[in-house]
């Protein structure tokens, strides 16, 4: 559905994307993780035909993005933080403008507002909405015309956990409906939860890519098991046959309060690969 091969993009002499390649099959959620300034938004803008590029091959729905006709581009749903709302319009009116543009029946605006949990705020002006509600309205606008591909640029950035959860539910529902979703985020938990595949972008290159759990396993160098015991102490063991007996004994003693393996998170993988944290620039 979306394919990139050796994509390069420069702003003047500064190379923002340094030859990245990936392939997203239809119906998948692809997550792009990286700190601010890594080139995530630039990539979305290239994929949606808003920005040109210098080198490489890019194909979206089988065509170069800049060659997609207006009608074909209507198959995109885009939610970018920088995309604004009509502040004087109510939620309903905001969606109505785009319902008219996409030839979507007006009753769909009510359905979609219900879907994103803004049914009761339908008549409220966009300027009076909270950040979470605005994000949900932007999300509703992005998929009200049931697009084939949805581009989401940090859809949950700065939102409370409850709104974040609601947005995750909506994204997963869209995936179930067959949408291909391209998602950028700082949030590794979000990426691990939602994405079929992810890529870690740092200074314009992919430093790692694959399924989130596979990436974590790939960097599980220490292979340790951590226990918290009822006397308040912590114990760590190697995950091997030698430690099995000790672990068994502790478990049988009934002193174990918690036990877990210590696979790295995407955050720690990113830190290991780049020496920087995903959210350090925020």
């Amino acid at each position: 559905m979306i394919r990139c091969n050796g994509l390069k993009k420069r702003y003047g002499t500064h190379e923002v994307l340094k030859g990245i390649s990936f392939d997203i099959p239809a119906g998948h959620i692809f997550g792009l993780l990286g700190p601010s300034g890594a080139g995530k938004t630039t990539l979305i803008r290239i994929l949606t035909g808003q920005l040109s590029y210098e080198e490489g091959e890019v194909s979206v729905m089988g065509k170069r993005p800049e060659r997609l006709s207006g009608k074909e581009k209507k198959g995109f749903g885009i939610m970018m933080d920088s995309f604004g709302l009509y502040e004087r319009f109510s939620c309903e009116e905001n969606l109505a403008v785009f319902a008219d543009l996409y030839d979507v029946p007006r009753k769909r605006t009510g359905e979609i507002l219900k879907e994103v949990g803004l049914e009761e705020a339908a008549k409220r002006k966009a300027s009076d909405l909270s950040k979470g509600m605005r994000s949900r309205l932007q999300l509703a606008r992005a998929f009200m015309h049931t697009p084939e591909i949805i581009f989401l640029d940090e859809p949950t950035s700065g939102l409370d956990p409850q709104t974040m959860k609601a947005i995750h539910r909506i994204i997963l529902k869209k995936k179930e409906e067959g949408c291909t979703i391209f998602l950028t985020t700082h949030n590794m938990e979000e990426a691990a939860k939602l994405c079929d595949e992810i890529a870690l972008l740092n200074e314009g290159t992919f430093v790692e890519e694959g399924k989130p759990e596979e990436i974590c396993r790939r960097y599980d160098h220490h292979r340790r098991i951590k226990m918290h015991l009822s006397d308040g102490s912590d114990s760590e063991f190697d995950r091997d046959a030698d430690s099995a007996e000790q672990i068994y004994e502790l478990l049988m003693s009934g002193k174990v309060v918690t036990i877990h393996s210590t696979e790295p998170t995407l955050e720690t993988v990113f830190l290991e690969l780049t020496g920087r944290e995903l959210e350090e620039d925020r």
Partner: peptide, 14 residues
């Protein structure tokens, strides 16, 4: 300024 023009552009408004 409000970046709504960009949203319109993405909805195929020339």
């Amino acid at each position: 300024e409000k970046n709504t023009l960009r949203v319109l552009r993405m909805a195929d408004i020339k």
